Computed example of a mutant assay.
Amino acid sequence: MRDAELIAALAKLVEARPSRGFWKCCDQLRKKRPDWNPKRIYRVYKAMRLNLRRAAKRRLPKRERVALYVPKLPDTVWSVDFMSDALACGRRFRTFNMVDDFNREALHIEVDTSINSSRLVRVFEQLKRDHGLPKVVRSDNGPEFLGEVFTQWAKANGVALQYIQPGKPNQNAFIERFNRTFREEVLDQHLFVCLEDVREAAHWWMIDYNEERPHDALNGMTPAEYRNTFAGSSTFEVSA
């Protein structure tokens, strides 16, 4: 095939640099193969349908402002968010944090270098088995929360997804306050060598946060004590 080499070169270039248009591709190819004239390159470029407009980034749907409120029962609204930090070696990691808005209980802190929509589903499935699920999950508009895997899982499990308005973290104030405390008391206090160190520190800190640390917003009670005032609606169990 006469144009096989040109097709292969174009395909490789476009795959590596999808945002480059025809003339950038043409100039780059002709540096190595000046015998390929622009008309020939453009003919092949069109035949490969590379001249078609690529899909633009999907715009976020308009988010309505929803007033922040304290639920009257546990497991009504859970707020979730991500944080990031680095190990001593400089390797970045993320944490996925989750709290119950009712009593500010820390429900879960997932730690890893990468956490996508599928990973979120596994986290929620674990909580579903051990704890139950909320009626609503409140989050920002991060791609993990917008991914089809996660949104379809939420729909199948009867969990409503409530997205805050872009650039309005105050609309998710409970998890933002939790993140600040977690950073001050854990992430900023230790130089972690590996992910297991982060996970262990987060585990023991969550127990202290839920069972020992009094909260001004809970009239000086711990999240566990506050939840147990509604024991009939609670699935919370203190640690052994």
Rank of each mutant, 00 (worst) to 15 (best):
P143M: 14
D140K: 05
P61N: 01
Q171R: 08
D85G: 08
H108N: 12
P38H: 03
C26M: 11
R17Y: 14
R227E: 02
D35S: 14
L87T: 01
N97Y: 04
F93S: 08
T113E: 09
F96D: 06
C25Y: 13
S117N: 04
G167K: 06
C25I: 08
K57E: 02
D35G: 12
E176R: 09
D130E: 13
F236W: 04
C25N: 12
L195K: 08
R17S: 09
L127M: 10
L146D: 07
D197H: 15
A8N: 11
E211F: 05
A86T: 15
G147L: 07
T235I: 02
K57L: 06
L87S: 09
R213A: 14
F82Y: 10
H203R: 09
V111P: 00
L191A: 11
A156T: 06
F230P: 02
Y226T: 00
F182L: 03
L107Q: 01
L146R: 13
I115E: 13
D188P: 14
R180E: 14
P143I: 12
D208C: 13
R65D: 06
E110A: 08
A55C: 09
N228E: 07
E200Q: 09
D85M: 05
M206Q: 06
E185K: 15
R49V: 10
A86K: 14
V186T: 10
A88G: 11
V123S: 09
D27A: 15
A4V: 14
